[in-house]
Simulated assay, not measured.
Amino acid sequence: MLAVASGGGHWIELLRLRPAFSGWDVAYVSTFANYATTVPGARYYIVPDASRFNKIAFFKVLAKALPIALKERPSAIVTTGSAPMLAFLVLGRLLGARTLWIDSIAQPKGISLSGRVAKRLATTVVSQWPEVARAERLPCWGAVL
């Protein structure tokens, strides 16, 4: 399984999910090298950051993500998001992996822009806010934080 998230709050949310990964062989991916210390003993990979303001960076993320996905061959990919991790949803789809996008807790009024894209790519997209989940016709499994 791949557990992927950008830095900051996305990474913190992903770490809060670690108990749910018990019994799985998990490799982690993020955008900061020093985050490897937060998942000791786990395989850890780094991809560059990207945003809607720098669309060229998505190709750099995809170039880094492809060898990771091919090496790991995940049966599942879980992400607490942000734009660079959309590459893993694309690759997961191509590899036949089940994918889960958990939209950020920081989006109480509506789904994130990346979450809108994820709705077209991921096997499952969930919101952490019941109101957003209802409006977007998504499941709400509760808050990670």
Rank of each mutant, 00 (worst) to 15 (best):
L95F: 08
R137Y: 04
I56R: 15
P48A: 10
P139W: 00
R137I: 00
P67M: 10
L95N: 11
L14I: 11
L121T: 00
I77A: 01
A36E: 15
G115E: 08
K60P: 02
G110R: 14
R16Y: 03
S104R: 08
T37H: 11
Y45V: 01
S30L: 04
D25Q: 08
L95C: 09
A33E: 15
A63Q: 14
A87P: 03
L94I: 06
L121I: 01
S127E: 05
A133I: 03
A143I: 10
V125Y: 11
G110H: 12
V132P: 14
A118L: 05
K109R: 13
Q107W: 01
A20W: 12
L17M: 08
A36C: 05
V126H: 02
R98M: 01
L86R: 02
V29N: 01
A143Y: 02
A27Y: 06
L94V: 09
C140S: 15
L62F: 11
A122C: 05
E136I: 02
V132S: 14
K60G: 15
Y35N: 15
M1D: 06
G41K: 05
V61N: 12
A27P: 07
L70K: 11
G142W: 10
V78W: 03
L62D: 09
G23C: 13
D103S: 07
M1N: 02
P74Y: 11
G7W: 15
W129M: 03
A143S: 15
L100G: 11
Y44A: 05
A122F: 01
A20S: 12
V47Q: 02
A143L: 02
I102Y: 04
G7Q: 13
T123R: 11
R134T: 15
W141Q: 08
A133Y: 02
D49K: 10
S6W: 04
P108H: 14
L95H: 06
S112W: 06
A33S: 07
P130T: 02
K55G: 08
S112N: 12
A27W: 07
L89C: 03
D103R: 12
P48I: 07
T37G: 12
G92D: 04
L62E: 13
V61W: 15
P139N: 04
L17Q: 03
V78G: 02
P108K: 15
P130V: 00
I111F: 09
S51T: 10
G110N: 09
G110Y: 03
S22Q: 11
E131F: 10
V125F: 08
V90A: 09
R16P: 01
E136S: 14
I46K: 13
S114C: 01
A42Q: 05
R93V: 05
P108I: 14
S82H: 10
L91Y: 06
V39Y: 10
A5D: 04
I56H: 14
P139E: 08
V61D: 14
V78N: 02
A5W: 13
A143N: 07
D49A: 11
S6P: 04
L113F: 08
N34E: 09
L17W: 00
L66H: 10
R18E: 06
Q128I: 03
A87K: 03
W141E: 12
P84E: 12
I102S: 12
M1A: 12
V125H: 07
K60N: 14
I77N: 00
A50F: 01
L86G: 01
E131G: 09
R18H: 06
